[in-house]
Amino acid sequence: MAEARGKTGKGRGLTALDIAVIIILIAVVLSVALRLVWDRIFSADRKDCTVSFEVSAAKSAVGSLLAEGDAVMLPDGSRLGTLGAVSVTPAVFLATDASGGPVEARWPEDTLVDISGTLTAELYDRDGGFLTKGGLRICAGTVIVLHTRTADFQVTVTGVEPATE
């Protein structure tokens, strides 16, 4: 074929068909590579996990909008899990007492609140840690802005536990 091309198509240059074939070949190679990487990352078992979290000094309006059973979404719009029990208390701030020592005080009602709660999420166990489907590591200390349908809140993850069967 190469000979035939050499005889008849010498200096013919790239045609649309050639480019289409090249693109398809590149797509095939890329898809195989992606698949291998994907499998490597997500070959581990999916696990239902309970993620506990805290929200510090959120607007009280946010606290009143969070309810058990709400879908919790990641910043990219994909679903992380479902909200479990939530506790809302006036936010704590650090002040100085009469002796000059630190003392915890609470913001007045309907101003700022601290929220603590849990959510159940399907996570991927990898190297003893947990990842979301998008590859985001969820572990104690992870700080991330999550949202329900109508509220945004920045959480600090305080723990991740696989659900017991």
């Binding site: 959120a58 309006a61 946010v62 979404m73 949202h147 349908r149 109508t150 945004d152």
Partner: peptide, 17 residues
């Protein structure tokens, strides 16, 4: 959006935002 709520030209409108 039923799960992601309200947005305008890609910018999310939500309580706390």
């Amino acid at each position: 959006d039923p799960l992601n709520g309200y947005s305008s030209e890609g910018l999310r409108i939500a309580v706390g935002a």
